[in-house]
Amino acid sequence: MMRRYLLLLALCALLPPPDAAADVVVIANPRAGVDRLSRDEVVNIFLGRFRQLPSGLSALPADLPSSQPEKAVFYRQLVNKELAEINAYWARLVFSGRTVPPRQAVGNDDLVSWVAGTQGAIGYVDRARADGRVKIVYEFSP
């Protein structure tokens, strides 16, 4: 675990500066009954492997549009993948008819208000946008 963490740290050091500066956090609806998610749980929910919150509720993940830099930062920090790889991953699951990708928000405000209004909803935004209507359930920074 430690080794993977160090590897990730080393890889993060190689990332271009604007990404490193963005502080993306995972947010959930306060009524979801979840305080904290593990990295594996976040991966399972966003990559469509197992969409259940620890509280037993079905997880409803939402993505930002690719035009938002936070999306690339999120997937880079979560699984060290570029958006092209995430798209290729979803092409396999979508066109084999297995799982659908997270629903897509129009932008940051749309995502936060959707998470605030939907039990089980989970998303990611820059820390500065995570207001009192939503709960931070996972952070990348130590």
């Binding site: 995430i86 798209n87 979508v94 066109f95 990708p101 997270p102």
Partner: peptide
């Protein structure tokens, strides 16, 4: 649009 868009509603996609 992405391949990752439009979750939750009718969608037409291709490859």
């Amino acid at each position: 649009g992405d391949v990752t868009s439009e979750g939750g509603e009718f969608s037409l996609r291709g490859f």
